[in-house]
Design a binder for these strands. Structure first.
Lengths: 204, 204
DNA sequence: AACCATATGTTTACAGTGTCAACATTAAAG
DNA sequence: CTTTAATGTTGACACTGTAAACATATGGTT
């Protein structure tokens, strides 16, 4: 009883792609698989995504929307270090809980965001809120604010990468070795660690 | 006049894989392509690499060896902040100049390093030198040392990721937007930035 | 020196992939 | 109501990872 035209295929394909991406990693996500999952012919997705990369871009965009949601600080109210810590924890948790999507967002699967303006906007929006937060926190120059942002951002990004390796290595119960041991140490005291880091950044 | 047996195929395959990986990214690297490039039948690599992931592991290992070479500090001599900065710059440059290999090393293409003990050792060796450096720099507890390591490491790792996005976005001469602007700001003053960061870390 | 197990190659095959071209059906615009 | 553009389908091509069966050379044991 289904009609020749789906009606809302693009949306469903993206949803499907997001699901499959997060479940099995974007490497195993295929044009054909999302087509099959959506009950449509194998090349139908090409009416909505010029290339696989552009599908990736859509998935990444959903990721950034979600990330924005959990990390954005209400800058109309007073911004505190505590809020920044909270946000930072949320950022890291997002990275850990949406690991595969996170890869898509910050990896090389989508080469140049400026080929996907909507994606670029979403990505920038996340950052913009962070910038505003720091601006509200102290009366710094634009340059200093930017500096603080990048410092925090790169730290968070780096932590996600490292904590994930810990998570993977720690799964089978084998004792952690080398750097992983220390990393898990941080993971268990994330709040404390972030407090220290943020204190450093804020004091500049 | 070539004989049936190659004699040194594994080595050549790895070399070939490293080259192709760095040139076009590991995603486009195929078992068949390295076979062809090495003038050998398409399935010959399977005599040396059980799976594609294990080939990836070998490429990643070469990467860690190279990284170790440019970042290791002579801990038999006095360790200074200056040396740590130097090493940090080298780390970041490695990440930028060997971007594709870096992805392989720190991404998800090789899932669990403990499946490749040699790789794990190489990866840990890089970290171990950093640990020793911090140990030599100040008389801290193991815990504090580990903490400092992870803080620096995640920072460096994060910076590489972000500076690369800048590099990509900045290629076509378009004005950088949002976070990229600030990131490029850091890129242009890397030494200064790292000095600040390291000062913060060392003081704890 | 003859023999044989093993390591290393090759050929063939299968199922899956991204993507293109040609065609079918429908919804929207005139 | 007809035409056009949007959206779907079929079929094809060249490529991929990898398994199975087979070929050849190497090295150790008699």
């Amino acid at each position: 009883m289904k009609s020749y035209h789906h009606g809302n295929l693009k949306q469903e394909l993206i949803l499907c792609a997001c699901k499959l991406c997060e479940e099995n990693g974007y490497e195993t996500l295929s044009m054909r698989s999302i087509a099959k999952e959506s009950g449509v012919s194998q090349t139908a997705p090409y009416r909505h995504f010029e290339t696989k990369e552009s599908l990736y871009a859509s998935v990444a965009m959903e990721g950034f929307k979600k990330l924005s949601k959990v990390t954005s600080i209400d800058t109309s109210q007073k911004v505190t270090k505590k809020k920044l810590i909270e946000t930072s924890v949320n950022y890291i948790n997002f990275g850990l809980e949406n690991a595969n999507t996170y890869d898509l967002m910050f990896g090389t699967a989508v080469g140049d965001f400026s080929n996907y303006p909507e994606l670029l906007d979403c990505a920038n929006a996340t950052y913009e809120n962070m910038r505003l937060s720091f601006a509200k926190l102290a009366n710094d120059s634009e340059e200093i604010i930017a500096y603080k942002c990048i410092t925090l951002w790169s730290m968070l990004h780096g932590l996600v990468g490292i904590l994930r390796k810990v998570a993977i290595a720690g799964v089978d119960g084998e004792p952690l070795r080398g750097p992983m041991t220390s990393a898990s140490l941080i993971g268990d005291n994330l709040d404390l660690h972030l407090d220290k880091v943020l204190t450093g950044i804020i004091q500049n």
